[in-house]
């Protein structure tokens, strides 16, 4: 588990560099460290959870693989549906098997990329949206404990969007035949990662 966290950090090194730069800005500010902490904990919650990371990257990958309009529609749909899941979480509405749902999201989304599944756009949006509820619920459950809820909320929404962007960027390789193989292989790895989380191997 720890090794995987480190490997994910390495893979997202440019992103983490930006995030850490932002962190320095906060730490050197005047007061109310709790607010900065809220933002940072929100920002880091998706990034430091490998199960969240691979699923978010898979959303971007699948969007890029499907091409327009999915490449842009999915990153718009996901945060808005995730907010609904987050609202359920902060309201204390229980959602069964949240962690299982997150692991399954990686499996399904990874498999969609690996097998180059191209459903109608509304089907893709429904699949992604359904899983977004699990991710949102997991983030939302942590929100009441955050030093500043709005800061936390901004943090995890931005981090989620940037992870989508990572997937979209990698998925851009699908324009070339060899890149398409790489993208599908990436989807396969994500699906395997999802299985590892599902069965507690990771």
């Amino acid at each position: 588990m720890h090794d995987q966290v480190i490997s994910m950090k390495t893979r997202n090194l440019p992103l983490l560099a930006v995030l850490l730069l932002l962190a320095v800005t906060d730490a050197s500010a005047h007061s109310a460290e709790g607010l900065a902490g809220g933002f940072l904990s929100g920002l880091m919650h998706p990034v430091l959870g490998p199960d969240h990371v691979i699923a978010m990257v898979a959303v971007g990958l699948w969007g890029a693989f499907l091409g327009r309009p999915a490449i842009w529609l999915l990153p718009i749909v996901f945060p808005m549906v995730m907010a609904f899941g987050g609202a359920l979480g902060v309201a204390g509405v229980p959602l069964p098997a949240v962690e299982t749902g997150i692991a399954v999201s990686a499996i399904v989304l990874g498999a969609m990329v690996a097998f180059a599944v191209r459903p109608p756009i509304w089907v893709a949006a429904v699949i992604v949206g359904a899983f977004a509820i699990f991710h949102g619920h997991a983030h939302g459950t942590e929100l009441p404990n955050a030093a500043n809820p709005l800061a936390y909320s901004l943090g995890f929404v931005i981090a989620t969007g940037l992870l989508h962007l990572c997937g979209i960027a990698f998925g851009g390789l699908a324009h070339w035949p060899a890149g398409k193989v790489a993208v599908r292989a990436g989807g396969g790895l994500i699906a395997l990662g999802g299985f590892a989380f599902l069965f507690g191997v990771a």
Partner: peptide, 12 residues
């Protein structure tokens, strides 16, 4: 993003 951030905090 703005909608998502604001909506969750409103729910909270």
């Amino acid at each position: 993003w703005a909608t998502a951030s604001a909506f969750i905090v409103l729910a909270f």
